[in-house]
Design a protein around this nucleic acid. Structure first.
Lengths: 129, 129
DNA sequence: GTTTGCCTTGACGTCGGCGGCAAGGTCTAG
DNA sequence: CTAGACCTTGCCGCCGACGTCAAGGCAAAC
């Protein structure tokens, strides 16, 4: 399988695949003419990368998962390093949710305050008429 | 007030203040020798910028608030444009919270699955001994 | 007068995950 | 033999809010 086909099957682009390679996440074989050649295992790796990216992981976070897959596991999640990352990310997400809730609260207050101010101004202007 | 003092009083850096100026958010007067000179109103503007940045606004989103302050309002939130931005941001935050909840759910499932797999592997290895 | 400490503009660097383009090699069908 | 559809490497661009020099001017203290 060449890079174009892999890109299509994995739902990404050749550019991204070459980038993953520079980051040491994918290691294709090379044909005699220098073309990158991928097997089914690499397809699984790329799909793992994509699904983790979609969840908000960075490529650094993904590295352990790829290593885990390469070590022969059917899932990239079962290795200790992967689990550690999962735990950390979960904590990060929890923190993010909390932060957003605080922000949301703040925004609602500011909105309420702004609208109250506007109503007041509106009333005053009516009285003036 | 010169730029260094403003930076300190607003809890930011001179670099940031100059950047806000390039973005048209702050407009200091100039001394005879070309130094930027700020008054108290500009301090209020900068504090508004900072607090909105901290909440996750971009400088583009902040522009209406600054205009509102400059228009003579005591709060930058009371003008229609500001309220529109507040509403939009609130919606964005809500969307973000939802997304994070979905991600969180996914992470918990993956974690649970990974741990279950590891327990199973552990049990199998005990039986083999 | 000189040191110290502020100020000025300008230009390049950062982070992440690529996109886009150029110049060239390869492979296959007609 | 050639067209066109792949592939290669390499390098710059992007986004946003600045950080980090560099080279030089201005102000006040000693």
């Amino acid at each position: 399988m060449l890079i174009g086909e892999l890109a299509e099957r994995a739902g990404t682009t050749t550019r991204a695949l070459r980038y993953y390679e520079t980051q040491g996440l994918v290691r294709p074989a090379r044909s005699a003419s220098g073309y990158r050649v991928y097997d089914e295992a690499e397809l699984r790796v790329v799909r793992e990368i994509r699904s983790l990216l979609a969840v908000g992981f960075g490529l650094d976070d993904i590295r352990p998962f790829v290593a885990c897959l390469r070590a022969g596991n059917t899932s990239g999640h079962v290795c200790p390093d992967s689990v550690a990352v999962l735990r950390r990310k979960l904590a990060e997400v929890d923190a993010g949710i909390e932060r957003l809730h605080a922000v949301r609260q703040e925004l609602r207050e500011q909105l309420a305050h702004a609208i109250a101010q506007r109503e007041e101004t509106c009333l005053r202007s009516r009285r003036t008429r």
